[in-house]
Computed example of a mutant assay.
Amino acid sequence: MSMSVPELEKALRSLRLSGMVATLQARALQVASHEMSFIEALSALVQDELDRRRSRLLDRRFATSGLPQKATLQMLDWSFNPRLPKRDILELGALKFIDSREDVLLLGQPGTGKSHVAKSLALLAVDRGYKVMYREAHVLLEEIHEARQLGHLARYRAQIAGASLLIIDDLFLRRLPSGSADELADVLMSRYERASTIITSNRPIDDWAELLGDAVIVTPLLDRLMHHGHLLRFEGKSWRLKEASERAARSTAGAG
């Protein structure tokens, strides 16, 4: 006995085939109008289901990564700031550094695209199936402190160590609490030659010892970062200033 379309949809839902439910009627019309054979329509329905599942999986991976938004390398206006290390950035976009367990240090002036590039690489890694963890530096340190206070430090450290790619964004953008040097060293030592870490900062390396308050720790920390690492320097014009100027211009034009 054949099923009606509503009955088929109900059966597909019970089998958790929501991707097929979404396109069932459209595929049926394609068969009825002889645009597709039965086998072609069935193949398309299976592909619809696979696409839906992949989309949901990527959404879950993105949500658990901690990324605040979906930034991409295609969004960068390379012509606006030709001093960017474009070749090196695009090479990192191949994500070979993750498989090689190499680290990346992005240094430079505020607004020149360091965080955007880090988030773009993280999004590429999410799409490629890597486990990604993104945190602003002060948030990471706050979460470590909270985990210690609640007795969950081992679990949180395991979460950090288990990420194929960890992004520590905007290091030194805010004043770090005492003990941050030890915490940061613990994170990086636990991942050394085991997984990849990207760090962005607008402060030159020469300032790190003073900012962390522990010159003894900074030297081996940087040594491990750079042993199998990539150092990219960001210079030139600020995108944030450009966007602020454009917003001001639009506001002035609107007021007129």
Rank of each mutant, 00 (worst) to 15 (best):
A249N: 13
Q30K: 14
S14V: 09
A244P: 02
L222K: 06
L231G: 01
R194V: 04
V21C: 11
H152C: 12
G66H: 01
R56E: 15
P204C: 03
D103R: 11
R224Y: 03
A253T: 09
S100N: 15
R61D: 08
L231P: 00
G93I: 00
R250I: 00
Y192Q: 09
A255F: 13
A249V: 02
I167V: 11
L45H: 03
E35S: 13
S33Q: 12
E91D: 11
S33R: 14
S65K: 04
F80C: 04
L232Y: 01
R128W: 06
S120Y: 05
R191K: 08
A161N: 10
D206I: 08
G129S: 11
M226L: 15
G236N: 04
S180L: 05
L221K: 02
L173P: 02
A181R: 04
R101P: 02
L84G: 02
R56Y: 11
E136W: 04
D103L: 10
A181W: 03
S79Y: 07
W239R: 13
R27F: 05
A163W: 01
L166T: 00
P220D: 07
L84H: 01
T197N: 06
L42N: 12
I89D: 03
Y156R: 08
D103E: 09
E143Q: 12
L92K: 02
K96V: 05
K70D: 03
M75N: 12
D169C: 06
P110V: 05
P220F: 08
A215N: 09
L211P: 06
D77H: 06
W208D: 01
P177Y: 03
F234E: 02
E246M: 08
K237Q: 09
L221H: 00
A71Q: 09
R148Y: 05
L17I: 04
L222P: 00
P220R: 07
V5I: 15
S79T: 13
I160L: 10
